[in-house]
Design a protein around this nucleic acid. Sequence first.
DNA 1: ACAATAGTGTCTTTGAGACACTATAGA
DNA 2: TCTATAGTGTCTCAAAGACACTATTGT
Lengths: 224, 224
Amino acid sequence: MNKNTEAYERPILTVDVALLTLIDGRLHVALTTRSAAPYENAYALPGGYVHVNSDADTGQTARRVLQDKIGFTPSHLEQAFTESGPTRDPRGWSASVVYLALNDPESLSPLIDAGRIQLYDVAELPALAFDHAHLIDLAVQRLRGKAAYTSIVAHLLPADFSIPELQAAFESIIGRRVNSANFRRKILETGALEETVLVYKAYRPSQGYRLVEQITDFGQNLVR
Amino acid sequence: MNKNTEAYERPILTVDVALLTLIDGRLHVALTTRSAAPYENAYALPGGYVHVNSDADTGQTARRVLQDKIGFTPSHLEQAFTESGPTRDPRGWSASVVYLALNDPESLSPLIDAGRIQLYDVAELPALAFDHAHLIDLAVQRLRGKAAYTSIVAHLLPADFSIPELQAAFESIIGRRVNSANFRRKILETGALEETVLVYKAYRPSQGYRLVEQITDFGQNLVR
DNA sequence: ACAATAGTGTCTTTGAGACACTATAGA
DNA sequence: TCTATAGTGTCTCAAAGACACTATTGT
């Protein structure tokens, strides 16, 4: 196994968060502006070093970084993957544990107003620091892959949402239209939703729902 | 973002490999014996430090570790997850990138004969170093989760296998029997397999197959 | 009253599952 | 020729999908 005396230089370990939301049917990612070298003033994912004296694990690092850098607590956070290599950070061999955070756009607008983040359509990214364009790409793939058989897209909406809203989000992510009657039937029979209040927005009001439990696998595809 | 001068102690970064195989319908994991402290002489997953001067990424670290420690090149290797925290390694705050390696038992027997690894049923693990019992548990969950909608279980078999063999492996992993006619029909229509040679083993010979491509998502469940 | 969106009922079609059957080898 | 395993054909039934319908609001 490992030598008793650690002979090797320790690589850099950072945590980066791909904070995604859905605006007008298009996935957007939250970018910050780097305040220091390397890549000073460049756009980047919010991220930072693990604090070995305070972080219980990298998930905690992700939460702390979001709180410290943009003053935000995500409603959904999950580990996605770890990217690593000698050249992705000019400071040396580095690994980044990348987390996927999902939120509704409303909850992010205070952050935009405060100038803490900017939202960019993931299909129209500006130049980014490090390999963050690649990390975003992988994170989006992960989200798209999970959309069809989990309740994950619900996290892109406010806590309370209607089934037509959920369907619209779902269709945006998987990139195709589905039949509304069948979508309603299938999502309800998964048991993932519970009724909340009626929502009066336009014309006929809609039944509000919230996620009653985190469904990680419906056991079936919501769309074939 | 990060300070220009890195003020934080770097955590330990290691890579551990859960090398799994299937023996008599039961998942087994390859364990090594640690030759140095901490946990000297304890069983552990093969793993080690990233070598920043030679490893292109953590996947490469996983391959190198398997080669160096047990003299083996896995036929299937994929990143599973990263586990981290202050207490999982007595030497300090550490993160382990855990890889899942799958192989047929035949290819592992030279390693057992050479005393480089021992195979243990994942349901009957001995005491293990670090949090490796937990890592194995998570790795097995990952494999089970992917079994139903990907071709992943094929990697637990030799490169050439018959459909009845694949079905038996599949049934072991997901923990239930499936209808052989339907399994055959569904696996063939995924296009994941291509015919090789006839295999003469007992009674009627079976058509050999090999994985023609890595299927990461059948788009359907092989079993409902 | 009309337009727009929410939600339901039901027919059609697909395909998963069950199962009886045939095929081909060893013993 | 008998048995064990490989592989096929086909029927049934559940569920996915399409679509026409009703319901409830704002304008």
